[in-house]
């Protein structure tokens, strides 16, 4: 049997991996990355792509959410017909389809509600699949104890953040809260974001929103995300604003603010 060939050069600073999840000290073959690393990267990229392109499992999510909020959730669709249209036409993802406008307009409802809860696939269906139930399990009891009236809840396919404005205004809600899949990173294929907007109307710009990002197992914990959200809701009703006028003084923000840019 021939002698085992040398196929890579290890980095002696391997121990630094303890300090970061970044892909450091991965060694090299010549100037290139070793096969194992190459395939690991490819796998993570594949997972991220799958998160973008896997359709929302509306049936399971609907039943999960309904059991947690104790009432019906209404399935609506943005004006984007397909995933590729959604990706290339963000304007369509910010508007409801005509059929969905009709559906929400015809719902029996009060003349005013405090909060509209909206769940949307955004750029990662897996963010919803994996995080919405555990988050709502913590959130709903706390939200109920605040004594706020809840508008009919909606589940949105092919939705972007601003679609919450249109939905909340049709539903006569003072505050919209949208739970949406964030743009996946290699390490975060299933990160959930929450955007809160007081007095949402069509054409609302981003500085009027507050965002909580990176909610996932291994990211911002559900309990922490929830307490931050409840704080923002409280402050928002107190000051009747949202966005940069509503400074987050709790200071438990972590995670990438730049995720917010892609909506």
């Amino acid at each position: 049997m021939s002698k085992k060939l040398k196929t890579d050069i290890k980095n002696p600073w391997d121990s630094l991996k303890e300090y970061t999840e970044a892909r450091i000290a991965i060694g090299r073959c010549g100037s290139s990355i070793p096969t194992e690393e190459l395939l690991d990267f490819r796998l993570l990229h594949a997972k991220a792509i799958d998160s973008v392109h896997t359709p929302l499992d509306c049936v399971s999510i609907t039943s999960e959410i309904e059991s947690l909020i104790g009432e019906k959730i209404h399935l609506v669709h943005s004006a984007a017909q397909s995933r590729s249209e959604y990706l290339s036409r963000p304007d369509l993802g910010r508007r409801l389809s005509d059929k969905s406008i009709q559906l929400l307009t015809q719902l029996t409802k009060q003349s005013s509600y405090d909060v509209a809860l909206i769940v949307a696939d955004g750029l990662s269906s897996h963010a919803i699949h994996r995080n919405i139930a555990p988050l709502f399990r913590v959130l709903m009891p706390a939200l109920r104890s605040m004594g706020l009236t809840l508008a009919p809840s909606t589940l949105v396919e092919q939705g972007r953040v601003a679609i919450a404005d249109e939905i909340a205004s049709i539903l006569n809600a003072k505050l919209s809260i949208i739970f949406i899949g964030e743009r996946p990173g290699l390490k975060t294929p299933d990160s959930l974001g929450v955007y809160l907007t007081y007095d949402p109307v069509s054409g609302t710009t981003d500085e009027r929103r507050n965002c909580i990002s990176n909610i996932r197992s291994g990211g911002l914990a559900y309990e922490l995300a929830c307490s931050k959200l409840l704080y923002l809701i409280q402050e928002s009703f107190k000051k009747r604003v949202s966005g940069i006028d509503l400074k987050d003084e709790q200071d438990i923000v972590l995670g990438s603010k730049t995720n917010a840019l892609n909506f």
Partner: peptide, 8 residues
């Protein structure tokens, strides 16, 4: 490793 884990 080509992955910016902050900016995703």
């Amino acid at each position: 490793g080509a992955d910016d884990m902050m900016l995703n």
